[in-house]
Structure formats: structure tokens, C-alpha cells
Computed example of a mutant assay.
Amino acid sequence: MNLYSYFRSSASYRVRIALNLKNLPYQIIPVHLVKSEQLTEDYSTKNPSKLVPSLELDNGKIITQSMAILDYLENEYPATPLLPNNHYDRAIVLSMCNIIACDTHPINNLRVLKYLTGELKVSDEQKQDWYAHWILVNFTALEELLKVHSGQYSFGDEITWADICLIPQVYNANRFKVDLTNFPNILKVVENCQKIEAFIIASPEKQVDFE
């Protein structure tokens, strides 16, 4: 499989972790978002949203959107499950995922930040305030769920999609220097995940396009 990825993209980071956890071979094809490589005609035919990631399967078919890719991998390669079987437990994990993938990431990603500073002319300080605000609001909600449901990881002692979504978002929060000291359960989960090889080799610093 080919994964069209940008080293700093948290959505791409999610998919890299999942592929590693499921021990699936894949090749990274870098798409440099800052250089607007996602806007080229060639890439746009692969992903009409002009975003990363895109996963190209062995048969040439392409899946876009990180959560759709995770769903495909979960169903196609069930030997290493990353979602609970119990319907309630699964719903809780998906709630955690959605706090990040729906409530946080879409309004803090690169194209939104570029729009804020470009079209809306906000200052770098205002952009930083915007980013930190949504991290703090949504991490506060997530922290409450982790108080109830976390063990070593976000949901008990088994790695799930919740961890796959959380680690990249924390990475970006740290990059933007957001103070996370009020989220001890989040930090506990991050510390435990960062000891696992699948997470380590998925990190931005380990990517072929890292700058």
C-alpha cells in the first residue's frame, strides 16, 4: 500500500500508527502541504479534498479521510483489533475520537490557520490564541472521559483508535506550546503510548520527509 502523507499532518500520523500497530507494510509518498503539493492536478485526482492522508491499496483503489482509512483497516485486517467488541465500549472510544477528529483538528489544521492569517489578517499571537483555545476546550472534555475510562491507555489497558487520535493532537499542541499540565490523564496516556514502537516509528521525526 502507498500512504500519501505529510510528516506533520496529524491525520496522516493517525494512519501511520494504525498501519504500524497492525504490522502492515506500506510506502510513504510525501505530499508537502506547505509547498501546496496537495493542490497539484495529479494529487487532486487522487484526493478531491486536496488533503492528506490518502491510502492507495494494492489494487490501485484509493481511500481518503483518516477515519475512513482506520475503519477500512479495522475491517480488512481484524487480527489486531483497535476497537472494543462491546457496543457501549466502542461508542465511548468513538466519542473520544470525535472530540479530536471532529471538534479539534478540523478547526486547527493548516488550511484553517493559513486562512486566519491570510484572508482574515489575524496576527500570529491571535492565531496562537485560537489554536490554544480549542485545544484547551476540547482536551478538558476528553480529560473527563479519561478520568472514568482510561487505564494505561485512553480506554482501559488496550490500545484503541482513541490513542491513535490523541497522540498526534498532543504532538501538535506541544508544537504550538499549549500548556497541558492540567490534563494528567492525557499526559499519562501519551507517556505510555510513546514507549511503543508502532507510535515511535510513526512520529514526524521518523518520516522520510521530516524537516
Rank of each mutant, 00 (worst) to 15 (best):
H133E: 08
K35G: 03
Y77V: 08
R111F: 02
I99A: 12
F183A: 10
A18I: 15
H133P: 00
K206D: 11
D129Q: 12
N185P: 01
N20C: 02
D157A: 04
E74N: 12
I186H: 06
E76L: 05
P25T: 09
T104Q: 14
I17D: 06
N182L: 10
Y72P: 04
D103S: 10
T160I: 05
N2I: 02
K121V: 03
N59S: 01
A198D: 11
I92D: 03
D129K: 08
E74F: 08
T181K: 12
A101C: 13
L57Q: 04
D89E: 15
L3S: 07
L180Y: 00
A79N: 15
V34G: 01
N20T: 00
A79V: 14
V170A: 11
I159S: 13
I200H: 05
H87I: 11
L55T: 12
F183V: 01
M67C: 12
Q126C: 02
D58E: 05
V34S: 07
S5D: 10
L116W: 05
I201T: 12
M96K: 05
L39Q: 06
V31T: 01
A141H: 15
L94Y: 10
S12C: 14
P184S: 15
K147A: 02
I17M: 07
D157W: 11
Q194Y: 03
L136G: 15
V112S: 02
R90N: 11
V112H: 03
F7Y: 13
N192A: 08
N109G: 02
H133M: 12
Y88E: 05
D42S: 06
C193T: 12
F210L: 13
Q38V: 02
Y43L: 02
S9M: 02
S12A: 14
N75C: 14
Y4L: 02
H133T: 08
L51R: 07
D71W: 03
E205M: 09
D179K: 05
L180Q: 03
L120W: 00
L180P: 01
Y153W: 09
E41Q: 06
T140E: 13
L24R: 05
Q152S: 15
D42P: 01
K121R: 10
I159C: 13
R8F: 08
S36W: 14
E158Y: 03
L70P: 14
S203K: 07
I164N: 07
K147M: 08
H149R: 01
E74L: 05
I196H: 06
K177I: 14
A91C: 05
R111Y: 04
Y171S: 09
T64C: 04
F183P: 00
E144I: 05
L145T: 12
L145R: 09
